[in-house]
């Protein structure tokens, strides 16, 4: 038995399990100092107070299920130990949370910036205008070429058509976009 624990705790918990309400106040008076002492050995003062309160409430909530054949001391300290571990885990998560927030904030945004979106739109408009200035035969040749398709002509003839269509498209593009 832990030094300083009231030997009446076993009988008090047994009476509480049976429904004897007159055992409540004496049990409270015995348990509260025990739990505060126990939690203060493992936690800082404010955390120890919170853990002791949570353990106390939990013990009374489960008192109806207390098995008189078990040690009341061991059971009570077990509940307090669980609360101590819970507080320590929360403390650990609070320490890890700022690091995670930093990682999220510094991650590069895959979406284009507003300026890049405007430039892309302008380029698409210029390309559309340039292609619009080509002949229908050139447009059809470039379309087939872009899709990997072939008209019913010889490969050499199609290659020549593609080269000429591309040359005319580059000229149109330079005129439209005023790029060298």
């Amino acid at each position: 038995m832990e030094r300083g624990i009231d030997p009446d705790l076993q009988s008090l918990m047994t009476r509480l399990a049976d429904g004897d309400r007159s055992a409540f106040h004496p049990a409270f008076a015995v348990l509260w100092p025990i739990l505060r002492r126990f939690t203060s050995r493992h936690l800082t003062p404010p955390e120890a107070e919170d853990a002791a309160q949570e353990a106390l409430v939990k013990i009374f909530r489960q008192a109806a299920r207390f098995d008189p054949t078990r040690s009341a001391t061991a059971w009570v300290l077990g509940v307090a130990g669980f609360e101590i571990r819970t507080v320590r885990r929360k403390r650990q998560r609070r320490r890890e949370a700022p690091e995670m927030e930093r990682a999220v904030l510094t991650r590069p945004d895959p979406a284009p910036s507003p300026e890049d979106a405007v430039v892309l739109r302008d380029l698409e408009d210029a390309l559309r205008e340039a292609l619009g200035g080509l002949s229908p035969e050139d447009v059809e040749t470039l379309r087939l070429y872009a899709h990997g398709q072939r008209p019913p002509t010889s490969p050499g003839t199609f290659r020549k058509r593609v080269q000429r269509a591309l040359a005319r498209a580059r000229v149109k593009w330079r005129i439209t976009d005023e790029r060298p």
Binding site: G19, F28, W32, Q53, L56, V57, K58, F60, A63, A64
Partner: peptide
């Protein structure tokens, strides 16, 4: 503080008994 804690514990005890019942 201890009075409030005792009241809270007493409520928890009765709720626990009812749940167990």
């Amino acid at each position: 503080l201890e009075s409030r804690l005792e009241a809270r514990s007493r409520r928890a005890y009765e709720v626990g008994r009812l749940t167990h019942a």
